[in-house]
């Protein structure tokens, strides 16, 4: 059933592929977090854009990520945007999760009582100081766990990149399986890798959450 010799043979290759998976996760999340913040801030700064942004967010959240990846990868060239598979895939993942993240930021800003803004104005604080010293410190604690959950969700979506032949973990396992007709070991190892990473990151998120909460109370 389970061939240990084969397992040790494929382990290093899968290890290298895991690096691509992690790269895709981190780059995708940086795009998601910054673009999401930009969307949320634009919404606050220019209220006229609010409906366009909500239609965009709804559009992104209502259609499958796989189709969005295909869209950027296959339709992009028709508009002169030619990206390699990795860039197109990571961009699609980043934009997809930016829609989710922007809602997280928005909820964070909405949670700040109006009186905090008014008090800052009354104390003659500049916009920059208000943001840095009053608003941001109050927004971070509720946002961190939510963003963390999306980081884990995004990580678990990276196997979709295999659909456009990015050599990440899943694609590598698929190729191994089709070469040797042994899917058991590569697929199970990929599953275990995701399980382990998800459990570890869930624990990390919980730890950060408690650490931040302790600091904020003080």
């Amino acid at each position: 059933m389970w061939d240990w010799a084969y397992t040790f043979e494929i382990l290093p290759k899968l290890g290298w592929a895991a690096i691509t998976t992690i790269q895709a996760t981190l780059i995708g999340f940086v795009i998601a977090a910054t673009l999401g913040l930009a969307l949320a801030l634009t919404r606050i700064a220019v209220p006229a854009t609010a409906w366009i942004i909500s239609v965009f967010v709804e559009l992104i959240r209502s259609t499958p990520l796989l189709i969005q990846i295909f869209f950027i990868y296959f339709v992009g060239p028709s508009f002169g945007i030619v990206l390699d598979a990795f860039t197109a895939g990571v961009l699609a993942i980043g934009v997809h999760y930016a829609a989710y993240c922007s809602e997280v930021y928005r909820a964070g800003f909405d949670n700040i009582p109006r009186g905090q803004w008014e008090a800052s104005t009354a104390l003659n604080l500049s916009t920059w100081t208000t943001f840095r010293d009053i608003i941001i410190p109050q927004i971070i604690p509720p946002i961190v766990p939510a963003l963390g959950n999306y980081l884990v969700a995004l990580f678990k979506e990276t196997p979709l990149l295999s659909a456009i032949a990015v050599l990440e973990l899943m694609q590598t396992a698929k190729i191994m399986g089709s070469e040797t007709f042994r899917y058991t070991e590569p697929m199970t190892l990929v599953g275990l890798f995701f399980l382990a990473m998800s459990l570890v990151s869930a624990a990390l998120i919980r730890a950060t959450e408690t650490a931040i909460r302790r600091r904020m109370i003080r």
Binding site: K156, E157, T158, P159, L160, S162, M170, A173, K174, Y183, M187, T188, V190, G191, F194, L195, S198, L199
Partner: peptide, 11 residues
């Protein structure tokens, strides 16, 4: 919850 939907389907 800990693994990807795609990994589960393939498995």
């Amino acid at each position: 919850r800990g693994t990807s939907a795609l990994v589960q389907l393939f498995w």
